[in-house]
Design a protein around this nucleic acid. Structure first.
Length: 468
DNA sequence: CGGATTTGACCTGCGC
DNA sequence: GCGCAGGTCAAATCCG
């Protein structure tokens, strides 16, 4: 009887080991006290109602209540701290992913360069005689390409090998700058004097510095657009927005509304909401910029996707982006998703568009299906997917029982209905398909570019092959 | 009364 | 330089 009771108490443990002992103590004390009371009640019939005993009981009762209150307060405090740590962890994951993508693309570029070095020299001479090619390339080759140029130009006198340290230093500095910088309302990069790290100040020329600044500006300006059917004026995506303007844009009688993120002062993220001219039931939401503050889980996936997509669009994974410049729009329909994803660099800023309007009722709720074969295996356990999974859990806990978190590492994805547009945005952020679509779209563009414009047909440039 | 929204004015970039 | 279009500002207004 008694061992059974103790086992029950131990099984009530939570994740806070520090609490466990105190809680156990409390519960054990309670039970011991109850048992003692029972024993006393049975054996001291003649003396149980004395005043001394009553006051003693009251005292113990108060102590017990106080202990319980203390433990509860401690538990709440630890819970709050746990939530904060979760948010911080998500942020760190985001930063890690962006940095990793930069590094991988840089290394790929270097490999490609080494392989093509002899031929590239010839081409370079020819290009210099026809300057237009260089100019055109420089325009879009501002992402990792620019960083790689910086790295290579700086290290060419040292070693033919890509040492990594200067590259990393530069990439790090850019990442760090992106994180630490206070952005202007326009999302442009501030120009604090001496933002470059002291580690490698000689590596970067004035021209490179400007290119790097332009790169980061373009990354900030890269956009993710979501098309979804909604009757509401704006889909809720987990963030707080304040409307700061409205315009009638040319070619669309529906006004375009401008929103600014108000979750933190100075957050540069904006979004535009406009109804489609052809189909007024379609709401087009365009996100721009990176949040400068921790996000709620509901907004995490979207924000990280925006950031990752923007970075990838301009990254060295695309040796230059003239491929998509030429093709303007690259549509991809993923096997694992009914969402149509398009990439466009013909707009003033590169834009990833996810069209959810073609995703009606083809699938029943909670039906799992194999993940896209185009999806890189190493991304299955990626923070972005984890965030999506977390979000699924979050939404489920919010009462949205239609969303079931699944373990993507088991090659399954989550399917959610798109019929109810009130939850469309949440579904977008919760949908691993969304991120998968973006990753595959970007990878596809790289392949597209290689097929069309680059004599390097190495498919390992695709994100999906990076892990192999 | 404070915060959010509206809306006309203003700024900026781009093409001619 | 001028006009146009997109984007932003900020005073006025609305609303809870």
């Amino acid at each position: 009887m008694e061992p059974l009771d103790h086992k029950r108490v131990v099984n009530e443990m939570d994740f806070f080991a520090g609490d466990l002992s105190s809680r156990q103590h409390v519960k054990l004390d309670d039970e011991l006290q109850d048992q003692a009371d029972d024993v006393n009640t049975g054996l001291n019939l003649l003396t149980s109602n004395t005043a001394t005993e009553k006051s003693s009981r009251n005292l113990k009762e108060k102590q017990r209540v106080n202990q319980v209150a203390d433990v509860r307060a401690e538990l709440e405090r630890i819970n709050a701290e746990n939530q904060r740590l979760k948010l911080t962890l998500n942020q760190v994951n985001n930063n890690y992913y962006a940095l990793q993508m930069h590094l991988v693309s840089l290394m790929q570029r270097h490999r490609n360069r080494v392989a093509e070095s002899s031929e590239a020299n010839k081409t370079e001479v020819e290009d210099k005689t026809h300057g237009g090619g260089i100019v055109a390339r420089q325009f879009m080759d501002l992402g990792e390409a620019a960083k790689a140029e910086i790295s290579e130009s700086s290290s060419e006198d040292r070693s033919p090998e890509l040492s990594g340290s200067p590259t990393n230093t530069i990439v790090e500095s850019m990442e760090r700058r992106e994180k630490n910088s206070t952005t202007t309302p326009e999302g442009l990069i501030p120009h604090p004097p001496g933002w470059l790290p002291s580690k490698a100040p000689k590596l970067i020329t004035t021209m490179d510095n400007e290119q790097a600044q332009q790169t980061m500006a373009m990354i900030r300006k890269a956009r993710v657009s979501v098309r979804a059917r909604s009757e509401a004026s704006m889909i809720s995506d987990g963030c707080q927005w304040r409307k700061y303007g409205q315009k009638i844009a040319k070619g669309n009688p529906c006004p375009r509304a401008y929103y600014r993120c108000t979750m933190a002062t100075g957050c540069p993220v904006r979004k535009q909401v406009q109804r489609c001219a052809e189909d007024r039931t379609i709401l087009i939401t365009t996100y721009e910029g990176n949040h400068s503050h921790p996000l709620p889980q509901a907004a995490m996936a979207m924000a990280s996707t925006t950031s990752a997509a923007a970075s990838t669009l301009l990254s060295g994974s695309m040796p230059s982006a003239d491929g998509i410049m030429n093709s303007s729009i690259v549509p991809i329909m993923l096997p694992g998703s009914t969402s149509l994803v398009t990439l466009s660099a013909s707009a003033p800023f590169p834009t990833v568009t996810l069209d959810l309007t073609h995703n009606p009722n083809q699938r029943p709720l909670n039906q799992f299906h194999p993940i896209s074969p185009h999806l890189p295996p190493h991304l299955l356990g990626h923070p972005i997917y984890n965030q999506s999974r977390l979000l699924g859990t979050f939404l489920s806990s919010q009462g949205n029982n239609e969303l079931v978190p699944v373990h993507l590492g088991q090659n399954h994805m989550q399917v959610h209905p798109m019929a109810d547009t009130a939850v469309t945005a949440a579904a977008i952020t919760a949908d691993p398909n969304f991120t998968a679509a973006l990753v595959a779209a970007i990878a596809s563009v790289v392949g597209h570019r290689d097929n069309n414009g680059n004599n390097n047909s190495t498919t390992s440039r695709n994100t999906g092959d990076n892990s192999t």
